[in-house]
Structures are given as C-alpha cells and as structure tokens.
C-alpha cells in the first residue's frame, strides 16, 4: 500500500475540503456567536494546506527511508490480500458474536488468523480451542464484561 506523496497529499486536500465544506453547513447555535462550524473549518483548511505541501514534495528530505523489504515482487502480490484478513476477522467478530456466542466466534477468528499467518493446522486447532477459554475467563469472570453466550456457553 505504498502510495506516492501526490496521492496521499491529494487525498488529504480532498478530505480537508470535505471537512471545511461539511463544517460550514453545520447550523449556528442560538445565543452563541461561535458555533460548531469554526473548529472543523479551521482543521479543514489546515489539511488542505498540509496536503498540498505534501503533494508538492515539501518536507520529503526529513523522512527516514523505510527499511528495505525482504519480500520480492511476486511474494508481495501473493501477500497483498492477506493484509485485509485482520480487519475482515474483526468485521466477522462484530457481526457473528451475538448469534454464535463468544467461544465459537473467537475460536473461528483465532483459527483463521493463525492459518493466514502460515501456522500448521496442528498449531492452529489447539490454539483456537484453548485461547478463547482463557480470554473468556479473564474478561467474563474477572472483569465482568458481558460476552454473549450464543450457541455454546462457557462451563462457568
């Protein structure tokens, strides 16, 4: 996901413009001279300014070069999609936990996460069975976080 400074800087300019425009649309507050619009607009203009500086390459000389990646080009392409596994697993957790319950959801999450990191099934399976129990114990018993029971309740 290495993008050129032109792209990230341009994105910041667009975001800043959107913030300033969105801020200016906010309704004034009756009885106050300074409303909710002032601060987002200020930040919006700041972002536009910084974004254009970045797009034109100002301040580039300060940056420390990223450590050279060992990955070759073809490997990078193969690994590219894997990067999205963690957010996808979090999305899965948020959608599934109320239906499946904590232990099952967490088990699936750990199992898939471990596989994506090239763990053998021999490591991933026991991990996916044991880890959720410990997390459940710590959060549910000690910290009283209401983790949903779903299809499979904990023994405590």
């Amino acid at each position: 996901m290495q993008l050129s400074d032109r792209i990230t800087g341009g994105a910041l300019v667009l975001l800043g413009a959107a913030a300033a425009w969105g801020g200016s649309k906010l309704p004034a507050v009756p009885g106050q001279d300074v409303g909710p619009a002032a601060f987002p607009m200020l930040i919006g203009f700041g972002l536009i300014f910084c974004g254009s500086l970045i797009a034109f390459g100002v301040g580039r000389s300060f940056e420390v070069e990223e450590e050279p990646q060992e990955n070759s080009g073809s490997l990078m392409a193969r690994l590219g999609l894997r990067v999205l596994v963690p957010p996808a697993l979090l999305l899965f957790y948020a959608l599934a936990v109320d239906h499946l319950g904590f232990l099952l959801t967490a088990g699936v999450m750990v199992f898939l996460g471990a596989l994506a990191l090239r763990a053998s099934v021999k490591l991933a399976l026991p991990l996916a069975i044991i880890a959720p129990f410990f997390v459940h114990l710590a959060f549910y018993r000690l910290l009283r976080v209401p983790l949903p029971e779903g299809l499979l309740g904990a023994p405590w």
């Binding site: 963690p86 697993l89 979090l90 957790y93 948020a94 967490a106 999450m109 750990v110 199992f111 898939l112 996460g113 471990a114 990191l117 090239r118 763990a119 490591l123 991933a124 991990l127 880890a131 959720p132 997390v135 959060f139 910290l143 976080v145 983790l147």
Partner: peptide
Amino acid sequence: AAVMPIILLLCAVGSFA
C-alpha cells in the same frame, strides 16, 4: 502465528469492553 491471532482477539474483546 500463535501470538498475533490472540492479539487480534484481545483487540476485539478489549475494545468491546
């Protein structure tokens, strides 16, 4: 490969909490 998935799980539960 064993630590990272558990961290992910802790992130989910910790932020939920």
